[in-house]
Computed example of a mutant assay.
Amino acid sequence: MTEFTRETLLEVHRYLMQDIYPWAGEVRTTEVGAMGMAMCRAQYVEAELDRVMKRISKMPASATDKESAVRTVADHWSELTIVHPFRDGNSRTQRFYFDQMLRAAGWSVDWTRIDASQAHAARYVGAATADPSFLAQVLIPGVFAPDELPGDTANSFTATQGNRNNASSAETFHRMMAFRREYPGQPWDPSIAGESAR
């Protein structure tokens, strides 16, 4: 994938969900929530989706600076998370979409080095707070320049599908939010968060 538009997002959802839902590839018209939060109201989803897609077209992932590329993807992913354009299948669709965005910019992504539950939780922290730094921090260990990582990382996406534990994601989300309140501006530290959440 080399184009990252509304149409390509809908195509990804349609492809991934076509055997599950008759409405695969269609923008939702109903209210949804996740992580105990209401997502974008249905009446605003179309406009918000267009807004996020315009930002994506104006702010592509860097092809030369890995940290910048990951921060950009984390920012876009956090915004798309709160828009939540589909009734279901948002996580699978967005993970593939942003995996492809990083790869199109020339980066290799090894999803086996990214904690799926933490990444899921961090997306919602970014959605709730407009702070994508937690997601960027969770993603960075799995992103490499092509010559940095031996072997084929393309299969790591499929190999890790379904590895996320939803209960663990929800617990981690609440720990991240508590950590952010207790240690404002500090990078996410799971070992400290374990203590601060008690």
Rank of each mutant, 00 (worst) to 15 (best):
F4I: 02
T8H: 10
T8C: 00
L9W: 00
V12W: 06
V12H: 06
V12E: 03
H13Y: 02
L16A: 10
D19W: 06
Y21A: 10
Y21I: 04
Y21W: 13
P22Y: 08
P22T: 14
A24I: 15
G25C: 04
V27L: 12
V27N: 11
R28H: 08
R28D: 11
T29K: 15
G33Y: 03
M37E: 13
M39R: 03
C40I: 08
A42S: 15
A42Q: 13
A42L: 03
L49M: 13
L49Q: 04
L49R: 01
D50M: 02
R51I: 05
M53G: 02
K54A: 13
R55Q: 12
K58S: 10
A61K: 00
A61L: 05
A63S: 15
T64G: 04
T64L: 09
D65M: 05
K66Y: 00
A69L: 05
A69W: 01
V70A: 04
V70L: 04
V70S: 07
R71W: 00
H76W: 05
H76L: 02
W77K: 00
S78P: 03
S78C: 03
E79A: 11
E79W: 11
E79G: 05
I82C: 07
I82Y: 14
H84Q: 04
H84T: 06
P85E: 01
P85Q: 07
R87C: 06
D88W: 01
G89E: 05
G89T: 03
N90W: 02
N90P: 07
S91R: 12
R92D: 12
Q94Y: 13
Q94W: 09
R95V: 15
R95W: 12
F96I: 15
F96S: 12
D99C: 11
D99R: 09
Q100V: 00
L102N: 05
L102Y: 03
R103Y: 09
W111T: 09
W111E: 10
W111Q: 13
D115H: 14
Q118Y: 13
H120V: 10
A122Q: 09
A122R: 12
A122W: 08
A122G: 10
Y124L: 11
A127Y: 13
A127P: 06
A128I: 07
T129K: 13
A130G: 03
A130Y: 03
S133K: 07
L135P: 11
V138K: 12
L139E: 03
L139N: 06
P141K: 09
P141V: 05
V143I: 14
F144M: 06
F144E: 04
F144Y: 15
P146S: 11
P146C: 12
P146F: 09
E148A: 15
E148W: 02
E148K: 04
G151T: 06
D152K: 07
T153Q: 04
N155A: 13
S156T: 15
T158H: 05
Q161C: 02
Q161I: 13
G162C: 01
N163V: 00
N166Y: 02
N166A: 04
A167Q: 05
S169V: 09
A170T: 07
E171F: 09
E171Y: 09
F173V: 06
H174S: 06
R175T: 06
R175F: 02
M176G: 06
M177S: 05
F179G: 01
F179Q: 05
R180W: 08
R181Q: 14
E182H: 10
E182M: 14
Y183S: 07
G185A: 01
W188F: 10
W188T: 02
P190Q: 06
I192W: 07
A193Y: 11
A193I: 01
E195V: 14
E195L: 14
A197M: 12
